[in-house]
Design a protein around this nucleic acid. Structure first.
Length: 284
DNA sequence: CTAGGATCCTGTCAGC
DNA sequence: TGCTGACAGGATCCTA
C-alpha cells in the first residue's frame, strides 16, 4: 500500500475536499470492503480527519468514525469541481469512475469520494468513535519514527534481536508507518543490510536508521507522495514518482547513486528487497 | 513471548 | 496466441 507518506497526503486531500461536509449517501459495491452500517454515516457531517500510522480516521458528527485502511492497493479519489487522488497509483487516479475496482462510493452535495481497491485487502469500517482506541490494529500500533527516542528504538531492536532488521521495521507494532518502499530506502540511507539481525545493530546505527526513516518519509511527503499530480508527466505519459524519489526501490540492475555498484534485489521477510551490496554490508 | 510462513484477492508480466 | 507461475507500496493468522 500506500505507506505513511501516501496516507498523509490522502488525509491532507480529504481535509481540503470533504471536511465539514455532509455525506449524503453511501454505496458499497463489495461486501468485504465495507464493514458496518451505512445508516450510521449517511446524513452525518465530517468534523475532523486524523491519521494513525497508515490508518485514516474520519470522525463524524454523531460520534461515529469511519476508519479506512488502504492496505496494498487502496486509493481515494475525489471528483468534484476540482479532482484529487492519492494512494496506490493506477489509471483510476485519472480515469472514469466508478470503475471495476471501485468498492465504496460516498456521495456529497458537491462531489463523490471513491474508495478503489484492486485486491480488496483494504477496507472502510464504521465504528463508534470511543471504540477506535480499542481497535486491534490501533491498539497495537507503535510510535511513529518522529515520536520515538533513539534509545527506545534500540531497545525494540534488542527485543527482536534474532529477526532481520527489515522485518522488525516493517512490523507496525514496533514502529508505525514504514512499508516495503520506505523500509528499503531507510536501510539504504543508513547503510544497513536488510538481513542484518536486529540485535547486531549498534546504538549509533539504530539512531541513524531512525533518523533516516524520518528523513525519507519527510522527503516523500514534501514531494507529494504518489498522487494524481505525480502520476501523469507534463507530456501526458505516465510518470512514476519513484523514478525521482527512490534510491534503491525497484532499481535493481541500476547503479547505486552513492557508489555506482549495481543494486540487487533479494527476497526477505516475504518481500522483494532492494539494496546496494557494497554500501550495505551484511557483516561488519 | 518471538520468528517465519501461508493467506486473503485481483491483475500483470516474464517465460515457455 | 495461450498458459503458468511469480509477484505485488499490507497485515493477520497459524505453527513451532
Amino acid at each position: 500500500m500506500p505507506e505513511l507518506p501516501e496516507v498523509e497526503i490522502v488525509c491532507r486531500g480529504l481535509k481540503k475536499f470533504i471536511l465539514n461536509k455532509k455525506i449524503i449517501c453511501v454505496e458499497s459495491r463489495c461486501e468485504k470492503s465495507f464493514i458496518g452500517e451505512k445508516k450510521q454515516i449517511e446524513g452525518q457531517k465530517i468534523i475532523s480527519i486524523d491519521r494513525r500510522g497508515k490508518a485514516i480516521l474520519i470522525n463524524l458528527s454523531n460520534d461515529y468514525t469511519l476508519m479506512i485502511h488502504l492496505r496494498m492497493t487502496g486509493q481515494l479519489v475525489w471528483r468534484g469541481d476540482e479532482n484529487f487522488a492519492a494512494g496506490h497509483p493506477t489509471d483510476d487516479f485519472i480515469g472514469k469512475l466508478p470503475s471495476k475496482q471501485t468498492r465504496v462510493i460516498f456521495e456529497f452535495t458537491d462531489g463523490f469520494l471513491y474508495f478503489n481497491d484492486q485486491r480488496k485487502f483494504g477496507f472502510v469500517k464504521v465504528l463508534p468513535t470511543e471504540e477506535v482506541e480499542n481497535d486491534a490494529f490501533i491498539r497495537k500500533l507503535g510510535k511513529e519514527p518522529w515520536q520515538m527516542e533513539a534509545i527506545e528504538f534500540y531497545q525494540i531492536l534488542q527485543r527482536h534481536a534474532k529477526a532481520p532488521i527489515k522485518a522488525v521495521i516493517l512490523d507496525q507494532s514496533n514502529i508505525a508507518g514504514l512499508g516495503n518502499i520506505y523500509a528499503d530506502e531507510s536501510l539504504f540511507c543508513a547503510k544497513i543490510h536488510p538481513a542484518r539481525r536486529a540485535g547486531t545493530l549498534t546504538k549509533t546505527e539504530a539512531r541513524q536508521l531512525l533518523k533516516c526513516a524520518c528523513d525519507v518519509m519527510d522527503e516523500s511527503i514534501a514531494s507529494g507522495g504518489s498522487t494524481m499530480a505525480t502520476y501523469v508527466r507534463a507530456d501526458g505519459t505516465k510518470g512514476d514518482y519513484l523514478e525521482k524519489f527512490a534510491q534503491v526501490f525497484r532499481r535493481d540492475g541500476q547503479k547505486c547513486p552513492r557508489c555506482g555498484t549495481e543494486i540487487i534485489k533479494i527476497r526477505l521477510a516475504g518481500r522483494g528487497t532492494h539494496l546496494c551490496p557494497k554500501c550495505q554490508k551484511e557483516s561488519q
